[in-house]
Design a protein around this nucleic acid. Structure first.
Lengths: 187, 187
DNA sequence: ACGTGTATGTCACCCGGTGTCATCAACTAG
DNA sequence: CTAGTTGATGACACCGGGTGACATACACGT
């Protein structure tokens, strides 16, 4: 027996999401979240850098999966093909978590603070993908634009995916968005 | 004679930028900014929704100019051509403020909080351009992707522009970024 | 001269976030 | 078995961002 109940971080995340969903993000204090998890405010901030971060621990996993897909792309693939090679594992992960993603997206949509955090996570992701491309020998300019394009496709498709009911539609929605983007940018 | 010194908002902006540049964003308190402007903390928050916003009052002007350019685009232009029609007035405005833009960009680059705010301003801009396109009869999907593309081009070119010394290079850098993006997305 | 509107000041308050020290079970060394 | 160490947590004081409520004093129209 350990001294503390296990998985304090997970308890905090669950308590936070439940409270945000019940009564809203702003109306929920960190002390409330901690209390529901059987902990204190000070301990919350030992596990999460700030109140928003409790909703974004998954962004690391997203980045890891995407970069795995990038690393697995064939050596002769175009920069954009390398980026989109990351979409397969990503789609798979999200498909298994459609309901959770919807609840979380609803919370974020209602709060500009949380949208800001989401956007900077996507920008960090863009930066990581750019670095991976440069590592493969892609020029800095092409890398940054290919990464931006891929993340935009993900972002747009994600928004469409949470708005509809089919959990398996994510991969298809990303392909459609990419096709539409191609047709928009075609001179 | 009016009771108060004129342009309280402008004084607050100038005081804020000076202090952020001198001693950093985090190290500067709102009370300090207000004091340098001859006002109080409470009055600062009557002019700006929060501490970050004092650096972003220009985003409204950017959006206004861009949308003007969009409105002036020929009726038969492609969605992306409509979006990029906004880049002319935008480039002109920034060209006249290269030095200011550099200082401000330096402050923002040093602070994740400020980067978040910048990103959501760009997202708001994307939304406004999307709405303008839909208003012109463009489909929602094409509109959102064309707007994202245009804002990405602006964003990438802006970062390159503040890193070099020629104030007049902005328009050219945007054209180059757009060309690179086209070549990246070309199947 | 008298109300009305408006930008500001004052003050009290809440909450997010941090630094510091104490606590106490689990582990490890001897 | 005992003593020292480690590591997650609690307790507490504190700072700064942000807000609500009320007071103040000039400008302006009547």
């Amino acid at each position: 027996m350990s001294r503390w109940k296990p998985d304090a971080q997970g308890r905090l995340m669950k308590a936070a999401i439940a409270l945000f969903d019940e009564q809203g993000y702003e109306a929920t204090t960190v002390a409330e979240i901690a209390e529901r998890a059987g902990l204190t405010k000070r301990t919350f901030f030992r596990h999460f850098a700030d109140k928003r971060e409790v909703l974004f621990s998954g962004s690391h996993e997203l980045q890891r999966l995407w970069l795995e897909g990038v690393a697995a792309a064939p050596a002769d693939a175009t920069p954009l093909a390398v980026v989109t090679a990351g979409l397969d594992p990503v789609a798979q992960m999200f498909t298994e978590r459609h309901e959770f993603a919807r609840i979380r997206a609803g919370i974020i949509e209602a709060n500009p603070e949380l949208q800001e955090r989401e956007l900077i996570k996507l920008q960090n992701l863009t930066g990581a993908i750019t670095a991976a491309l440069v590592e493969r020998g892609v020029s800095a300019n092409a890398a940054i634009l290919a990464a931006h394009t891929g993340v935009t496709v993900f972002h747009v498709a994600f928004a469409r995916w949470v708005e509809q009911d089919d959990p398996t539609a994510f991969r298809r929605l990303m392909d459609e968005s990419l096709e539409e983007l191609r047709s928009v940018t075609a001179a």
